[in-house]
Design a protein around this nucleic acid. Structure first.
Lengths: 175, 175
DNA sequence: GTAAAATATGCACATAGTTGCATAATGAAA
DNA sequence: TTTCATTATGCAACTATGTGCATATTTTAC
């Protein structure tokens, strides 16, 4: 359901074509729910089939038609009921942790390389977060609550990533 | 691949029946990679089909046969190469964050209830972690590195959960 | 004694996500 | 001028996971 929810959120303010939606998605919600362009196009078509979206085809000369999707009343209701229903707890999936359960068979070199690369990924992510914060949230107190809400998610992302970095460094040091 | 990896890890030390494996899995790796019993039985059968496991059927009088699975050489190699290959970055999937991107449409009452329930879940998880720590890792320094490794994952789980709790409480206070 | 939970196995269908490929125009770089 | 990136759309096949159901015995609780 969550890809669907993400698309409902994206289309809630204004209609758009698949590509529009893809661009808006990449600017924000992709940090929350990753999906490929194929998945988006397919899901938009299914949502139209389920009556959550209408699709207006704008023919273009010598190009594929542009398809403008917009929320229907059913789509708006689906979004509202998704927002109102509490989410189910999401399953834990940490493949890296699994390797810790096979410690003896995990070669030391591979382990060290993997943890070092992982730490670099995390630090890269912190850099990305910092850039987003500078660009969009330089003065969070000046924003409306609705504008500030995504900033909260960013801050949690930062803190979780910092927690990860601290842990990786500890684990790397220890052995 | 990760369910498969988890089963390879579980079977690496000693062979076992589906139900054995399920019990061992529930004692540890389920905190790392969740799966249902149906999934385990199905995956064990597929792994046998792929030559990673052998399956010896022990007939029992007036009961379904017990099937003892054990790693083959190919299975051991598959585990070793999984351990050696660095993992791909796992996609971000935070449906709760998505709700923050629809702040205006998220009714305040639903929001408050959801965050409060979520905080309770997190605190419950901390209680579970503390119980596991008491039972299995009361003196981590006395353990071998291989025995201590799962303890590291537990500690990260604790710290991440604490970070979440702090964040949820801040967000709940703010509005 | 009867009802229930636990032991023990698994199939079938549905949903979600990944990967590879296909098409076709435009604009920019080499 | 050919090649590469970007814009713009999507199908098909595959893999992974979740949900509901089915079966049959043994043990425990009321």
């Amino acid at each position: 359901m969550s890809l669907r929810a993400v698309l409902l959120i994206t289309l809630q303010r204004e209609p758009g074509t698949g590509y529009d939606i893809l661009q808006r998605f990449k600017a924000g919600l992709v940090h929350v729910w990753q999906a490929s362009h194929q998945q988006l196009y397919r899901e938009l078509d299914r949502m139209r089939g389920d009556g959550l979206l209408t699709c207006e085809t704008l023919p273009q000369a010598e190009r594929p038609d542009r398809k403008v999707y917009r929320l229907t009343e059913a789509g708006r209701k689906a979004l509202d009921s998704w927002l109102t229903e509490p989410l189910a707890a999401s399953p834990v999936r940490q493949p890296l942790f699994a390797k810790f359960f096979a410690w003896e068979r995990w070669p030391e070199q591979a382990r060290h390389e993997e943890l070092a690369a992982f730490r670099e990924q995390l630090k890269q992510r912190l850099t990305t977060y910092a850039a987003i914060e500078r660009e969009w949230f330089s003065n969070p107190q000046a924003l409306t609550p609705a504008q500030r809400a995504p900033w909260h998610t960013l801050r949690l992302g930062q803190r979780l990533t910092e927690t990860w970095v601290g842990w990786v460094e500890e684990v790397m040091e220890e052995e």
